[in-house]
Design a protein around this nucleic acid. Structure first.
Lengths: 205, 205
DNA sequence: AAAACACTGCACCGCTGGTATAGCTAACGA
DNA sequence: TCGTTAGCTATACCAGCGGTGCAGTGTTTT
């Protein structure tokens, strides 16, 4: 299991691939680009991954884990600042907006957003992976909403699912717009607008 | 100028291309796919378009015109139902949600959303076209907001730009989510949530 | 009749994703 | 110590792709 060189090479390929793909896009990145940067041969690449599709799969898997961890960390951070479930969500959203707002230049862009359209047409397994990730995010927010609803009344009542999905919608859509209009702050502003909506729905101070 | 056969061939290529691309994605569609369906040779294709890039340009241009027209039509329809600028926007959003909700199966998906990520990396002119389109949509909503603000007070005050962008964000993000989760109603629900937000901001009945 | 337009048909190019295979080397288990 | 295996390298090759170039052809415009 603890194969020394194996993991380091595989990991190096993934890191190089992610870096190049965020600059040039998935389809715009050739395998040769990746193996040049990762200093490995084509044979070595295909030893580790089942082609470009297999690479995409591994990248999305990796990204979803990292991304979910960031969300969980911010929730934990928010959890230390308040015991009120509504305020926890509001603080979480503010922290997230800050995180995106502080990113240098045009933020790297969410790999999920970058893959979604390609994946729809090209690869079933990647599509499933992304779907699962999206469902997880929905569930993450819905958990919060359930806790909030135990103490607060939503007015007007919006479906938890729709409000939870709006979180993802704002992030994915925000990234698309921010990148196209080259406005770095846009994503943070959109998250704060979503936050203001949640706040109003629960009539918070 | 009024070359008879020219326009019909060009238009036929555009129509076939759009149909295939909405099914297989831009990068997933080969020029051969298109010329087969449009019953034209490769030479003929390159006579009309400056490669796949030139085709993308023409497609986006075409799409933006059609799309803006749909928005304007719905605004006009809403305009006939009320004279109040706030209610006009709210009716417009409801009509738009209905339009998306009534689309059969998984809706075809916005070509703009489909092209955004590819365009960022591949083509500067297409990127500019899309940017202009996005700015136009922002301006379209901001005009409405300006009129509303003459009669209503927004509370809390959100930047017009952010609220206007949120319209596009919800549509683009909603399409991404709806396609990935294969939930047709999601986009309509998101537009209605956005509508509810606008309504609350202006404290409407 | 000449010129321009709107193509067809074909040959060709370089790059890309992907396959195959032979061989080399360091580590690890028997 | 020896064989096996994991983890590669090197090389050669393939089909499909986007794209180019050009000679020829019918049709329409001037």
């Amino acid at each position: 299991m603890a194969t020394t060189r194996s993991n380091s090479s595989r990991e190096r390929i993934l890191e190089c691939a992610e870096a190049v793909i965020l600059n040039k896009g998935f389809t715009g990145t050739s395998i040769d680009d990746i193996i040049d940067k990762a200093s490995i041969t084509k044979g070595g690449f295909f030893y580790h991954f089942d082609g470009k599709t297999g690479l995409a799969e591994a990248l999305v898997e990796r990204f979803l884990v990292q991304d979910t961890q960031i969300f969980l960390d911010l929730f934990e951070e928010a959890d230390e600042l308040t015991e009120d479930p509504l305020h926890r969500l509001l603080i979480f959203l503010k922290l997230l907006a800050q995180k995106f707002g502080n990113m240098p230049e045009t933020h790297p862009g969410c790999l999920v957003a970058s893959f979604t359209y390609d994946s729809i047409h090209f690869n079933e397994r990647v599509r499933k992976l992304i779907s699962t990730g999206l469902y997880n995010w929905r569930e993450l927010i819905m958990e919060q909403l359930r806790e909030i609803d135990a103490q607060y009344t939503m007015n007007p009542a919006i479906s938890h699912e729709t409000l939870a999905d709006m979180f993802t919608v704002v992030i994915e859509g925000g990234i698309v717009l921010a990148r196209n209009l080259d406005q770095n702050q846009l994503l943070a502003d959109q998250i704060l607008a979503y936050r203001s909506y949640v706040r109003m729905l629960y009539g918070a101070s």
